[in-house]
């Protein structure tokens, strides 16, 4: 088999893989285009929410809008500044985190609450097993009283929340699995533990929730999760996508997107046209009648 044929096969393989990568749905957690259980496509559809790849795209007038942040990647100082500006100018910021970088934001906003970082387990009040604790104790008036209960998925709890700011508590049978053995041991913190908190920051409002998974496709319709989100997310909703960890598929998709972006510019398209012309005209260029 000639080198030319092998090259053609490799090229075909690359093209086939590119097509697969382009059309295969994303599998990233909380990702806007991921239709499987861990994606956020249903949330975006039903809440008419806008996915945000950069805080630069936040509205200049943040009143009557809600920004949901799932902070799994570290925030730059510019990001933190933009978040601070958003909430202090009247925006409604909802931080949903369990084991990510949410404490960076809370520290920057000078809010006392912190995410514990240890897993909250509830052996009795749960959906299926203790990793899915059910929350049914809400502060009066919080979340409009519409949501009767919210189900978490591998959540944590909040620490250092001033009493007046606690918005929801876990059950008294819940506990923090600090040694990660799945059982309660002497010395481990027992419930009820704060899992949601609300603060006024500047002219805006900050809601802290100890689990981001309530908005994924597989959890959205569970118990009162949807009603709860409707209550705490008024106005136009923005879902931050810039601080989520990428899987290889997304990186490959991003690479293809960059290539596409380059090609759809005028110069990129012209370059492609010239390349096609050169390849097309090559046989003519090389052909010589036998006499010559």
């Amino acid at each position: 088999m000639s080198l030319r044929k092998i090259s053609l096969m490799v090229l075909a393989m690359i093209l086939m893989l590119s097509v697969l990568v382009w059309f295969y749905p994303s599998s990233s957690d909380f990702e806007k285009e991921n239709p499987s259980w861990n994606g956020a496509s249903d949330f975006l559809d039903r809440f008419q929410a806008t996915p945000l790849d950069s805080f630069d795209l936040l509205p200049a007038v943040p009143r009557e809008t809600t920004l949901i942040v799932v902070p799994y990647l570290e925030f730059t100082s510019a990001d933190l500044e933009q978040l601070g500006k958003y909430v202090s100018s009247g925006g409604n910021l909802v931080i949903m985190d369990d084991f990510g970088c949410g404490n960076e934001i809370l520290e920057y906003l000078e809010v006392e609450a912190r995410f514990s970082g240890a897993q909250l387990l509830d052996p009795l009040f749960n959906y299926k097993n203790k990793n899915f604790p059910r929350i049914f104790s809400f502060a009066p008036g919080f979340a409009g009283g519409e949501a009767k209960s919210v189900t978490f998925n591998h959540a944590t709890c909040l620490e250092g929340v001033p009493p007046g700011h606690v918005a929801a508590l876990s059950s008294y049978l819940s506990f923090l699995d600090e040694d990660q053995n799945g059982e309660w041991n002497e010395g481990e913190t027992k419930g009820p533990l704060p899992v949601m908190a609300a603060f006024e920051v500047g002219e805006g409002r900050l809601t802290v929730v100890a689990d981001p998974s309530i908005l994924i496709n597989g959890m959205l319709d569970m118990d009162g999760n949807r009603e709860f989100l409707e209550e705490v997310c008024p106005g136009q909703i923005y879902l931050d996508q810039a601080h989520l960890p990428d899987v290889l598929l997304d990186e490959a998709k991003e690479g293809l997107r960059v290539a596409r972006t380059c090609l759809i510019t005028i110069w990129g398209t012209l370059g492609l046209i010239i390349l096609v012309l050169a390849l097309t005209l090559k046989p003519v260029w090389r052909l010589r009648p036998p006499g010559e």
């Binding site: 697969l20 599998s27 959906y127 299926k128 097993n129 597989g218 899987v247």
Partner: peptide, 25 residues
């Protein structure tokens, strides 16, 4: 290559509620 790309390994700790094991206490 495709298997590696499409595997979608994630570091976020949560599980599919539809397939989670059910346990009474």
């Amino acid at each position: 290559l495709w298997g590696t790309v499409a595997s979608g390994l994630t570091q976020i700790p949560h599980e599919n509620p539809a397939t989670a094991e059910s346990r009474d206490n």
